[in-house]
């Protein structure tokens, strides 16, 4: 650039410096954001492996004294599977049908607009408030007591809006030409939705549901208020307190001794593996669906 400043005016030092500084800051921001992630994953894996054994996966905490080593999270894993499974059974049909209403039937109606608005509101409900609601409604007013099912209800409240939103998005991606082609063949609307629209959006919907499951599987606060806590195995989600994996971690980390902390880390490792597997499965389904894959 020194050759002929008359032809090309060089960019001033100040401007180049500012450009560099911002670039540095952007890199720094990314590194700062990744450090906690690495720290969390590293500590969970390192500390979690100490107790991540068969006993941990197959035993409960029954008859494990305050300072005893051993014990496991079997009851918590079982509880989580049941609670999350029930929550899925409740929220997926409601969420799917609501999304179908919003996309296929509700267009422009006042009811659809208000449902859409309240789905947004529901998305923002803090999980602890969802827990408080089930506590007030199910446990206190109806007097039905703490149970895995109460927890599933609380998780459903968190899960439904997510399912609605992701399904809605997928249904809107289905091209209108497909619907019209089907109508033109004399297929009624509801059959068009069931046979044409839903199958087209199927993998996308499944991905959304998996991500929603992964999200609620790690929820603790709503369970604390509805499932309560127990050290024993309770296979019946409809009667009596249960345990859940997130609850188990919270319970163990609050206990003032190292063997409990070790169990909390092992629980965290189990939970992260569970959540990450769900995430991974969702991504694989999404990838499998994506048209770019074949090329």
């Amino acid at each position: 650039m020194t050759m002929s400043p008359s032809v090309i005016t060089p960019v001033s030092f100040n401007r180049r410096l500012k450009n560099r500084v911002v670039q540095g800051l952007v890199w720094l921001a990314f590194i700062l954001a990744v450090i906690p992630l690495i720290s969390v994953i590293w500590l969970v894996v390192k500390n979690g492996l100490a107790r991540f054994d068969t006993e941990f996966l197959t035993h409960s905490m029954r008859n494990i004294g305050a300072r005893d080593a051993g014990g496991g999270a079997y009851h918590a894993i079982l509880g989580t599977l049941e609670q999350v499974g029930l929550a899925t059974l409740i929220s997926v049909p409601v969420g799917l049908l609501t999304a179908i209403y919003l996309v296929e039937y509700g267009q422009g109606r006042r009811l659809a607009r208000s449902i859409s608005f309240f789905v947004d509101v529901m998305t923002g409900i803090p999980s602890v408030v969802a827990g408080l609601f089930i506590l007030a409604f199910w446990v206190l007013v109806l007097g039905l007591g703490y149970s895995g099912f109460a927890g599933a209800l609380a998780l459903s409240i968190l899960m439904m809006p997510t399912v609605v939103r992701s399904t809605e998005e997928m249904l809107r991606l289905v091209p209108n030409e497909l619907r019209e082609a089907s109508y033109a063949l004399g297929v009624p609307k509801w059959k068009t939705i069931l046979r044409i629209v839903l199958p087209t959006a199927f993998t996308g919907i499944i991905t959304g549901i998996m991500l929603a499951i992964a999200r609620v599987a790690g929820e603790t606060a709503p369970l604390l208020l509805t499932v309560f806590i127990t050290d024993s195995i309770n296979t019946d989600p409809f009667t009596g307190p249960q345990m859940g994996l997130p609850l188990y971690i919270f319970d163990q980390m609050g206990r003032p001794n190292d063997t409990a902390i070790d169990r909390a880390w092992a629980g965290a490792l189990t939970l992260i593996l569970f959540v990450m597997l769900l995430n991974l499965a969702a991504r694989i389904i999404a990838w499998w669906r994506s048209p770019a894959k074949g090329r």
Binding site: V40, V44, E219, T220
Partner: peptide, 8 residues
Amino acid sequence: AVPSVVYG
């Protein structure tokens, strides 16, 4: 995706 209890 890391559950809040793990951050806790």
